[in-house]
Structure formats: C-alpha cells, structure tokens
Amino acid sequence: MSVITRTVTRVVFPLILLTALALLFQGHNLPGGGFIAGVLTVAAFALVYIVNGLDYLQEDLLGRTGDDVEGGPAIVADFLNVFAGGLAIAAGGGVVAILLGQPFLSQAVLFVHDLPIFHELELASAFVFDLGVYLVVIGGLLTILTVVGDE
C-alpha cells in the first residue's frame, strides 16, 4: 500500500474509534448505539488490517504475541474473550434486574443532580447492556474477519 494510504489510515484510525465511542455513549438520546458503534470499530480495525496487514494489527497495534490458535491467528483468542465478555456483561446486567425483583433485563434510569459542568446527568442502566452489545459485535465480527482473512 502506498505511503499516502498508510499515513491517512494512521490519522483516520483514532478518529473512527473516537466517533464509534461517541456513538456508543450518545446512543440513548441521539442516533447511535452499541451495534453501530461496534460495526464502526470493526471497520476501523479492518482498515488497518487491509492497509498494514495482519501482523501489524496483531503485534504492533494490539501487542499480541504467541502461537496461532486452532483455526486462526493468535489474536483470535482475544477476540473470543471480547465477545464472551460482552455476552456476560449483557446477560449479567439482566440478572441484576432479577436480583432486584424485576423481570430479566428490566432497565432503569437514574438522574444525578447538582453536578459541576453537567448540572444534571442521566445514567441509564441500559448502557451496560449496550456495552455488552458493543463488545459482542466487535469480538464476533473481528473473529470472522480475521479467520476469513487469514485463509
């Protein structure tokens, strides 16, 4: 790949990640949410992957060394952990609702008043679930991408 693409990727990559995070956080009130943010994050990684190759993504960017796992490169093991963790967060948040005597996956909103700068902050328990969605999408799609790309 040319120097131009590589340089542009360098600049764009953090911007995409930042956009994705913004989408994740604003999802409750503005367009966005865990799924879109997740897919956008994967797109950022895919860009690095295509421009710089798998080794760069795996070793330089994510600092992963070690032997390949069965069916794919070593990094896949981390991706598996990411989506397993995401599923656990999403389901765990639902279980908390049960512990509080509500049906599985009930969500609530907490308003915190009198904060500096924000004045009033809305904390939604749904964000925990959305975070789970975000992680599952990242882990799952990156696993597919890496395994298929490695073939």
């Binding site: 009130n29 966005g32 949410g33 009930s106 609530a108 909103v109 907490l110 308003f111 939604a124 959305d130």
Partner: peptide, 13 residues
C-alpha cells in the same frame, strides 16, 4: 429513578 419509562430520546435505541 425512572423504571417504567425508557428515559431516552432515541426511540430506536
């Protein structure tokens, strides 16, 4: 604390 309502203006989310 708001439990009965979604509490978000993005209805899709």
């Amino acid at each position: 604390i708001l439990a009965d309502f979604g509490g978000g203006s993005n209805i899709v989310n």
